[in-house]
Amino acid sequence: MSNYAKKTQEHWQSEEPRQSVQTVIVHKAKISFGEMTLLLVLALLIAAVGVKIVSNQSAIYDTNKEIQKIEGSIDEQVKINNDLEVQVSELSTYERIWKKAAELGLMLNENNVKVVQE
């Protein structure tokens, strides 16, 4: 080999291999106008459904509160009615009626009593 060939060979061997630079191209995913519109409509629909659910729950809560108030007043009225029934049964005893009739001057005449059958 000639001297020149040897130098060239040594030159190629001593030289570092060249590094190739690769550029990476990043493609951004573009959202089209139609897709953006659909996403907007979907977001609005989800928000509307959420508001509707919350308003329904609020109405249910108010109705249940009203029902409980009415049930409380019904229980009170039942107690009052039971007390009045007890009072009526106490006031309508035969002894009390005879006593009141005697105070008013009424007397029992058996000839004026008629038996009524139902």
Rank of each mutant, 00 (worst) to 15 (best):
I80L: 08
V54T: 12
T63H: 13
K52D: 13
Q57N: 11
V115Q: 03
I53M: 07
V78M: 09
K6D: 15
Q87M: 11
E16K: 06
N3V: 11
L39S: 07
D83H: 02
T63W: 04
L39P: 00
I25Y: 07
V49Y: 06
V116W: 04
L84D: 11
W98E: 15
I97P: 02
N82Q: 11
V115D: 07
L106F: 13
G50K: 01
I25C: 01
P17Q: 14
E95Q: 03
R96N: 13
H27I: 10
K52V: 15
E10P: 03
Q19P: 04
L40W: 07
K100P: 00
E16I: 07
T93D: 05
I31V: 11
L84N: 10
V115T: 04
T23D: 08
N3L: 15
F33T: 06
D62Q: 09
Y4G: 07
N56M: 14
G72Q: 09
L45N: 06
L42Q: 15
H27C: 00
S2L: 02
L108Q: 12
N3M: 09
Q9R: 01
E110A: 06
A101T: 01
L39E: 07
L38D: 06
A48F: 10
I74A: 03
K69H: 10
E35R: 02
M1G: 13
N56L: 15
E66F: 05
S55I: 13
Q19G: 05
S2A: 01
E95P: 00
L108R: 11
W98C: 15
I80H: 03
V54L: 12
L39Y: 11
V86C: 02
D62R: 10
V41D: 11
N3G: 09
E90Q: 14
V24C: 01
